[in-house]
């Protein structure tokens, strides 16, 4: 077994295999993970974080691949986290985003990691944030996190990024659909991908109109960019807008605020998960089961049962 010190040393020397191993131990919450994250934390804070989200089939991976190539043209290092859902039935997952990222396959300036959601309630956003921290600490200048824009926790991940790109396609219904899914609310930049398809202009106009209705938020109104990611069209424009948003946030102090918000959320999440872990130890779980029996037997109410457990913790 490799020692943590050794692994961290290799990591700081720029060994990609070590980076990969550290991501694994963080993702799996292996016993050394809090220690590792603490030791890496001072190295974080340099990477700009971009979230890319949208409905399935919107061409997100292709778009991310294009963005990565654009970033690489400036000789910056990029990390990509591609999140796909786990099966709720088997816990397994098929992670296929690399299929569309062939062009960046062996570029030493790019590191792509696929992550399954693992059905964790809320824990996913935390894990994805941790992995982004690890990539940040490794020295990637930009970290792009790609998620499917369904479900709250995927949206949380996207929102934790400094710039959130929402990708929609002409046939994904209309902008209203995306609005309903809460996507428009979190968008800093909107990409209408596969813009060579019928209805692209219409959806671009609709989106624009909807955004105008929403009005500026913190002095920024999200631009709508048409892209054809499979041909590389519009990627440069998209990147320019992301860059513009970055500059805007930096200058307006919003970036600092955003980071502060992220730190607060992280601290809270850690506290909450620790409380959860501490509360539900072996003793309290067995107590829970016997109390439930009693409730079922009509001897107590659920509220009384919980009071019992809480007193157990307080009294410890």
């Amino acid at each position: 077994m490799v020692s943590t010190d050794d692994l961290l040393k290799r990591f700081t020397d720029g060994d990609r295999t070590a980076l990969s191993k550290i991501i694994t131990l963080v993702e799996n919450h292996e016993s050394s993970f809090p220690d590792v994250l603490d030791r890496l934390y001072p190295r974080t804070g340099k990477a700009y974080r971009i979230g890319v989200t949208g409905p399935p089939g919107a061409g997100k991976s292709t778009l991310v691949s294009g963005l990565v190539q654009r970033v690489r043209a400036d000789d910056k290092l990029v990390g990509v986290i591609a999140v796909d859902p786990s099966s709720p039935f088997t816990g397994g997952a098929l992670l296929g985003d690399r299929i569309r990222m062939q062009d960046i396959g062996i570029d030493p300036g790019v590191f792509v990691r696929s992550m399954a959601t693992r059905g964790s309630l809320g824990g996913l956003a935390e894990a994805a944030g941790d992995v982004a921290d690890v990539m940040d600490a490794f020295g990637q200048d930009i970290v792009i996190t790609e998620t499917v824009g369904v479900g709250q926790c995927e949206l949380d991940i996207a929102e934790a990024c400094y710039t959130t790109v929402v990708v929609i396609v002409p046939e994904s219904g209309d902008a209203i659909q995306a609005m309903k899914a809460g996507l428009m609310e979190i968008a800093d930049v909107i990409a209408i991908n596969k813009a060579d398809r019928e209805g692209a202009d219409r959806i671009a106009r609709q989106t624009q109109a909807m955004l105008e209705l929403r009005g500026e938020r913190n002095g920024w109104s999200p631009p709508v960019i048409c892209t054809i990611a499979s041909q590389g069209d519009g990627i440069s424009d998209l990147f320019d807008q992301i860059e513009k948003h970055r500059v805007f946030q930096t200058e307006s102090g919003l970036l600092k605020k955003h980071r502060r918000g992220n730190v607060e959320a992280t601290v809270k999440a850690i506290v909450e998960s620790e409380i959860h872990r501490k509360v539900w130890g072996e003793r309290s779980l067995s107590k829970l089961h016997s109390l439930v029996d009693e409730v079922m037997g009509g001897k107590r109410t659920p509220r009384q049962a919980s009071a019992e457990i809480l007193s157990m913790i307080d009294g410890r």
Partner: peptide
């Protein structure tokens, strides 16, 4: 002409 890229299917 460029090259074709496979779509993600499963």
């Amino acid at each position: 002409f460029g090259e074709y890229k496979e779509p993600i299917v499963y």
